[in-house]
Design a protein around this nucleic acid. Structure first.
Length: 426
RNA sequence: GGAGAGAUGGCCGAGAGGUCGAAGGCGCCUGACUCGAAAUCAGGUUUACGGGCAACCGUAACGGGGGUUCGAAUCCCUCUCUCUCCGCCA
């Protein structure tokens, strides 16, 4: 949620910034006008209330002195009627404003390239060498099935499309990746591991900005008010909901492994084969709560922490800055990390690292008390995948495939796989 | 799932229709004393919103929502959460 003060005092600037995200001006104008009306009404309302409070006090005083109070009651009755009317008006305006405010996306940071879609994304760097194969590299789904480490057909039998069953060394490789990533982040990068609930209340999803706009992307439990988390970002960011943190404790860095559940509504026909786009996948997520002055520095660090995993695994990748139009609703700046997939001869997203500034903190009410005293301020929240485990699995299988259909295990993972250094057909 | 108890400021804890934004204690801040510190003494110490250049003024908040009343932390309804006991389960 934006600070409504920004709309009050810098309406034109907010409109311009949001237009970069393709957000229409009218909503901001509506909010601005409603807010003006609201302030007028609330001011009137509070004046009447003050009058009534004074009369009530007066009655108390007269009663104690044993004096007549009857004459005051008529006046109070009128004031009460006025109050009821104004209250209704104020409440209606508040609700309207709130509803609108929840649909306003975060403003993009000035460093974000302006553009309407991914064609305006800016490549920041490339790392690693793209392997040249002396054969036609296969897709991970084909390799995986021939090695019997994944099974799409049986997954479909159980759960339908966009699911996979990992088997044998496949299951073990997935598990190894999770442990490996968590080890790096907790032992080398200074994150505290948390293991949060996978079912959350709607309130948590409002906090991160997934609701109210993106209900269709989520799985909701029909027998209760729970939603399945689309990412660990939701429970972990809400860890400090409605809290006032110590300034000295910032930045707070968490990493969390969770499954993620996404309905993938509207992505029919996209990535239908293989494990790229699933209803359920695993992810190790990095989440930071930062001092506002430090958050862009923390974004760089967090992105490097995610890149480190790719570098340890020797997977070629590039970093891009998403353009204003390609960025998510809540984000002020996002780096995507894309790993190279030989079968597609292109880079595919494997991590998305964002600074939300105070957008989520405002929604979830996460603040800190400045050291020298003064008003509590909202923290900045950040998060990034470190990494999407399923897609890392895909990248390893494809990049480490050999002509005979086997897959070499990257050095750093072997100790997690009881020393297995290659997955071969049995 | 059944029965009961509870939720008050950063924390503990009083308050049982008006003088309560809320006693008292702890903590924290400032000052005095001290070479300095501890101890002691004095004062201060919630948040959000609106108005104001500001001093400050107003409104709201005692778990959330609603109600009774001129007036609610206090009475009523409801929801949530926590604790205890029983059942069930990993």
């Amino acid at each position: 949620m934006l600070d409504i003060q920004r709309i009050r005092s810098n309406k034109e600037e907010v409109i311009e910034l949001l237009s970069r995200k393709g957000f229409e001006e009218q909503t901001i104008v509506d909010i601005f006008n409603l807010d003006n009306e609201w302030r007028k009404s609330i001011s009137d309302l509070e004046n009447i209330k003050a009058k009534k409070n004074n009369l009530s006090k007066e009655i108390g005083k007269l009663k104690r002195e044993g004096k007549e109070t009857e004459p005051l009651f008529k006046e109070i009755e009128n004031l009460s009627k006025d109050i009821a009317n104004y209250e209704k008006e104020v409440k209606e305006k508040e609700e309207k404003i709130n509803l609108l405010m929840l649909t306003v996306p975060n403003t993009p940071h000035p460093s974000v390239p302006v553009g309407r879609d991914e064609t305006s994304n800016r490549e920041e760097k490339r790392w690693g060498e793209i392997k040249s194969f002396d054969f036609e590299p296969k897709g991970h789904d084909e390799i995986g099935e021939s090695l019997s480490i994944v099974d799409f057909k049986r997954a479909a039998k159980i759960s339908g499309a966009r699911f996979v069953v990992y088997k044998g060394l496949g299951a073990k490789l997935e598990r190894a990746l999770i442990t490996f990533m968590l080890d790096v982040h907790t032992k080398e990068n200074g994150y505290l591991e948390v293991l949060p609930p996978y079912l959350v209340k709607a309130q948590a999803l409002y906090g991160t900005g997934n609701l109210p706009k993106f209900e269709a992307d989520l799985f909701k439990i029909s027998s209760s008010d729970f939603y399945l988390i689309p990412t660990a970002e939701v429970p972990v960011t809400n860890l400090h909901r409605e809290e006032i943190l110590n300034e000295e404790s910032l930045p707070i860095s968490y990493c969390a492994f969770t499954p993620c559940f996404r309905s993938e509504a509207g992505s029919y026909g996209k990535d239908t084969k293989g494990m790229i786009r699933q209803h359920q996948f695993h992810k190790v997520e990095l989440v930071k709560f930062s001092h506002p002055d430090d958050s862009y520095n923390q974004l760089e660090k967090l992105t490097l922490d995610a890149e480190k995993i790719l570098e340890y695994l020797k997977l070629p990748y590039r970093r891009i800055t998403l353009s204003s139009g390609d960025m998510s609703f809540s984000s002020a700046k996002t780096y995507d990390l894309e790993v190279y997939l030989p079968s597609q001869k292109t880079y595919r997203e494997i991590s998305s690292c964002s600074n939300f500034e105070d957008f989520q903190a405002r929604r979830a009410d996460i603040r800190f008390k400045p050291k020298g005293g003064g008003k509590t301020r909202f923290v900045h929240t950040l998060n990034g995948s470190g990494l999407a485990v399923g897609r890392t699995f895909v990248a390893i299988v494809e990049n480490y495939q050999q002509k005979d259909g086997s897959v070499i295990i990257p050095d750093v993972l072997r100790k997690y796989l009881d020393g297995v250094d290659v997955i071969e057909r049995v």
